[in-house]
Design a protein around this nucleic acid. Structure first.
Lengths: 244, 244
DNA sequence: TCCGTCTCTGTGGTCTGACCACACGTGCTA
DNA sequence: TAGCACGTGTGGTCAGACCACAGAGACGGA
């Protein structure tokens, strides 16, 4: 549907479609190497620059990883790191004011609350060792605020990963990237970083405790309040310029 | 942040960063035109092909729209259609088995349930005329299954739009695109399309009714059952090959 | 025989220059 | 004044060239 190859299939789009078709047929799988740019160029009858534009798109979208040189690890290799593409998308859309920050925060609230509740309800108790390790790291008193925030983001991401839902994990990584700039700016709005970080640490522990206690309702509430509270504290003006 | 410009900033990345910086500074806003490719090339000291690769990325991500020719509508114009980029991302990630279909469906369940509940709770009653119109269109008995599915997707999207959250709207558009191929395949698995479509119509009406009745709990349950029921019916094997 | 070095080859990364189709503006023409 | 032809600048594409890089194999010395 839509304006993909409707009337004027551009050269790079045909390359993209060719690769997508091969992926769908299973002739290309994660770990495989794409043909060389020159080979693809002659094979599809387009210029090498058009092939490169398609390759570039795939790379930004997190589908492939390119590597110069020679050998088995060189070339364009199919990986699947959706988080990268999602991050680029969210970051740029926020920059272009296509995504209001408030909407991103709301989406985070929805997804993270759901994740926390699901983790608490999960029948085989989820593996939270990664989250625990991050919480321990955040207890270090010598952390710079930026380092703390990075660990904080990793903690939330670890919860998503523990839920096993890769779509949510990638989306949350992207959401985080989209508002990272604002989070760093908001740092300056905090009057007492020491108190704030201490509160965040306590809230984090509380979230994990609620999950371990299989108290889904509490886990949802705690993470919801945790996120909304933090943004209420840092964003002086949460009602930023809306969409155009 | 991470491996953006860590050690080897590639030429096209510098172009991307330059444009992103201009967006963040507000020197580029939606509706503006980017400098010409040749101008950007000389301005940034990179080749035109590198500029084009960056432009291509922005285009696929839904940030800009390119137009040949001359005049005020020609060139690369900044738009913000996040749905397009999200769709491409989801579609390709699914093709590369980076996103399990089951995870996409689960994410849909979470987002749509939340949207329905929020719509029911919204203090100024949300505008559901678009959704109503789509439901009316779906009552036409001459619709082909594909047409019905397209309207169905539009209906769900209309609900997201009514919620006013652009991030969720774009994400849902992407999720839908990612599983569109499977939805069309699943059509063949239906034994009685007539009965299924009739049930879907009834469920849709019920969802809207619950929203109008400001019954958030019912709205959540109805849309949750609606989606999960449909996928249970069409996907013969919902436990598809997991990751990698 | 073994091991270090050396070149050779193929990869992506980049730049340059060229041509094309297109659409708007301009200015000429009838 | 109305219509049309041309110039101009745009993105779209291609071809060719060069570079840096990394592996693979050949080569030579110990």
């Amino acid at each position: 549907m839509a304006a993909d190859a409707s009337d004027a299939p551009r050269a790079w789009q045909s390359v993209l479609e060719h690769i997508e078709a091969q992926l769908l047929e299973g002739r290309l799988r994660p770990g495989d190497r794409l043909p060389g740019e020159r080979a693809l160029s002659t094979e599809l009858g387009v210029g090498r620059s058009s092939v490169r534009e398609a390759i570039r798109v795939l790379e930004v979208l997190g589908l492939i990883r390119t590597q110069s040189g020679s050998g088995p690890s060189a070339g364009a290799i199919i990986i699947s790191t959706p988080g990268g593409g999602m991050s680029a998308l969210m970051r740029l859309q926020v920059a272009a004011s296509g995504f209001p920050v408030a909407d991103i925060v709301r989406t985070r609230l929805i997804l993270e609350s759901s994740v926390a509740g699901d983790l608490a309800d999960a029948t085989p108790a989820p593996d939270l060792t990664a989250a625990d390790r991050l919480l321990d790291a955040m207890d270090s008193p010598t952390l710079a605020p930026q380092e703390f925030l990075a660990l904080d983001a990793a903690f939330h991401l670890a919860l998503a990963e523990a839920s096993g839902n890769q779509v949510i994990t990638a989306t949350m990584a992207g959401l985080r990237s989209g508002i990272e700039g604002y989070a760093l700016q908001g740092l300056a709005a905090l009057t007492d970083w020491h108190a704030t970080s201490a509160r965040l640490r306590i809230e984090h522990r509380g979230i994990v405790e609620a999950i371990r206690a299989t108290d889904a309702a509490s886990a949802r509430t705690r993470i919801h309040d945790h996120i909304s509270g933090y943004y209420a504290e840092t964003f002086i003006d949460p009602a930023r310029t809306p969409t155009t």
